[in-house]
Simulated assay, not measured.
Amino acid sequence: MKVLITGSNGFIAKNLRVTLKKMPQIEIFLYDKEDSLEYLESLIKEADFIFHLAGVNRPKKSDEFYEGNVNFTQIIVDILKKYNKKIPILLSSSTQVGNGSDYAKSKEEAENIIQKYSIDNDVPCFIYRLPNVFGKWSKPNYNSVIATWCYNITRDIDIEVNNRDTLLKLVYIGDVVHAFIRHLYLNQSKEIFYEVDVVYEKTLGEIEKLLYMFKESRENLLIPNIAKGFERVLYATYLSFLPKDRFSYKLNGHEDARGTFYEILKTLDSGQLGISTTKPGVTRGNHYHNTKNEKFLVIKGEALIELRDIFSKEIIQYHVNGNDLEIVEMIPGYTHNISNIGNEEMVLLIWANENYDPKKPDTNYIEV
């Protein structure tokens, strides 16, 4: 199948392109505003499907809305008519249709052109009135408030929030691309207007709070729940805006005669991760927890881990090393320690089910 994408260097188009490239039997034709109309005609002659994503959002003059959104759409339809081609068109429109602005009016006129083409030629077409779209490769001060805020916050630039209670409807670029691509293969109906399946409703205040939590997580190491939902896709978007010289950040650790300890990451509901180094011959620990539990994983060197029920004299031992990875559980009510029994520095990865609270450490000293 030969697929034409107009506005091929735009935010949505870039994300669509990279997904289509991974699909077998899809040949992609790209058309952008710098290309000639003669080139457009040559592509349309060969195309089997058109993703019409080209459009004008923020022109200097209002006439450009109609030139870019209406006239260009009519040009596409006229070329199809010239060659008697009847192929599907998917148009990206906007939920702003109906608000009376020149942008909205131009988008609605473009919709009408596509609808007429669909009816006159009995060919399926698809119109998406998209709300705010966000995700990687979006442009700050152009595509969405999220793009602008991500750009500013990752560069320590203040953001403007007029009303934190303003509610936005948002769709993530990955969900938009998935919705678009399914029309290449699904049986088509007589419907022409479609929506993206997943729509988020968030206030400006909620978005602002999350973005600053992402920023501050490099200092306090506390990351929100980013495994699913809006937080997951917003965090991916935020990371995509990091300047190239800010991909990394330093950890602040603790060092003493025994070695070092660094907290790596803290979560809201799944504890924290840390890493320690221990010098040869040194023992750490000799304490128990009432409720806290930990997992120890030696990733370098050799170690002896010992545990003892505080009401028993029996000592349980585990010999572990970085060449044969083995997790040892620290059981509540068992005092435990870990000794470096090798000749090199021992490195230990530690997960705890709760974040360390110096006011309630749940750490009780007893020799194993």
Rank of each mutant, 00 (worst) to 15 (best):
N225F: 13
I226Y: 02
A257P: 01
L170M: 07
L222I: 15
K14P: 05
V77R: 05
P280D: 00
K86F: 05
C125E: 15
F311K: 12
D63P: 02
A257M: 06
V328L: 06
Y39G: 01
H289R: 05
E201L: 04
L184Y: 12
I119Y: 12
R164K: 15
I153D: 07
N187P: 15
L239F: 01
N337S: 13
A47E: 05
K266S: 01
I89E: 04
I153Q: 02
Y83M: 01
K279N: 11
Q96L: 07
H319L: 04
I305W: 07
N286T: 02
G100I: 10
N57W: 08
I207F: 00
N152R: 10
F261Y: 14
I299H: 05
A54V: 06
T154G: 10
Y83R: 04
L43C: 02
A104S: 13
T95R: 09
K33P: 01
Y128K: 11
K60Q: 15
H254I: 10
Y200S: 10
I146H: 00
A236L: 15
N220S: 05
K279F: 04
G174Y: 15
E108G: 04
D158E: 14
L304S: 02
D357E: 10
A110S: 11
F247P: 03
E108M: 11
T278Y: 06
L184H: 12
I316G: 02
C125F: 12
D120K: 10
R58L: 09
L43R: 03
E34W: 15
P224I: 02
I5C: 04
G259M: 13
I28S: 03
D48L: 01
K116H: 11
Y235E: 03
R155S: 00
I305Q: 05
I173G: 06
A147G: 07
L80W: 07
V328I: 13
F241L: 02
K202F: 03
